[in-house]
Design a protein around this nucleic acid. Structure first.
Lengths: 150, 150
DNA sequence: CCGTATCCATTCCGATACTG
DNA sequence: CAGTATCGGAATGGATACGG
């Protein structure tokens, strides 16, 4: 499970998992969606060691998920912001959140909700749908034979 | 980032990540959706060491994601199948897959597609929608103040 | 065929010190 | 504040041996 896997496994799930399937990377991405940009912000928010954070940020930048830009406040430091590729990880973070809300938080327990601007209330249960609006369930699919990407 | 985090962080994303945000757990769940049930099947499919697999399976069973059932073939062994809670991780696996298909596989490259039974063709781009059918984007949301789970 | 246990190398991680 | 370097302890992972 290494660089080799990332480029040789024909399974897109394996490739994604190999790239960012670890706790810190996923939480960095979560924070990035919440507007966190600076090294120190990530560090305090996550409670992660600075050396580890340094490595993870570099990996995510190398992977094209984050970009490293000059700080907007004129200081000589860097800001880490989601690229277009990174922003497409929104659904992944949402998936983690939806399952977590359902299965790791009990009734009455305090939790940090995701507020829907459309209503001002916590986002309800979301559904993955095809372009025609029909929902997809596990039984509707199976992994097929290898084929070239269109 | 441990058991304590899992029960104390108010962020559902962090709780989920803490529970199954590692490569092997995610790939075990992927395999489970693909019909893998037996220890040896997982072992060969993933190429993971048996001691690690043993630990991961136990963790997932303890978390209620997999159940450990008597083998259906009458042998004295165990089969690991997704529980209801586990099956609700389908969207998570799908989101990993969708990103991976788009951003880790290049045109013309061989990959393992997910076939949609409705069409017999690879599943296209999916969208997360609210109950009313409207799609949700990152800009439509923000993390709000703590509140009790309804 | 299942699964556990052990050994060893590697990696991960947190704390700390240090430089700009 | 931002980031790198180092050190020691813990966890991970692979290989293998072993018992059910």
């Amino acid at each position: 499970m290494n660089e080799t896997t990332r480029t040789t496994s024909p399974c897109p799930v394996a490739r994604t998992v190999d790239l960012l399937g670890d706790k810190w990377s996923l939480l960095i991405i979560r924070d990035a969606f919440d507007g966190v940009r600076r090294f120190g912000q990530f560090q305090r928010s996550l409670g992660v060691a600075k050396n580890i954070l340094s490595i993870r940020l570099r990996t995510l930048v190398d992977a094209g998920v984050l970009s490293s830009e000059p700080a907007s406040d004129g200081s000589s430091y860097r800001e880490y912001v989601l690229t277009d590729r990174g922003r497409e990880l929104f659904d992944l973070i949402i998936s983690l959140r939806q399952w977590g809300e359902h299965h790791t938080v009990v009734r009455g327990e305090q939790y940090a909700p995701l507020i829907d601007h459309a209503t001002g209330e916590p986002l309800g249960r979301l559904t993955y749908v095809r372009p025609d609006g029909s929902p997809v369930r596990a039984d509707d699919t199976h992994v097929g034979d290898l084929r070239p990407m269109a």
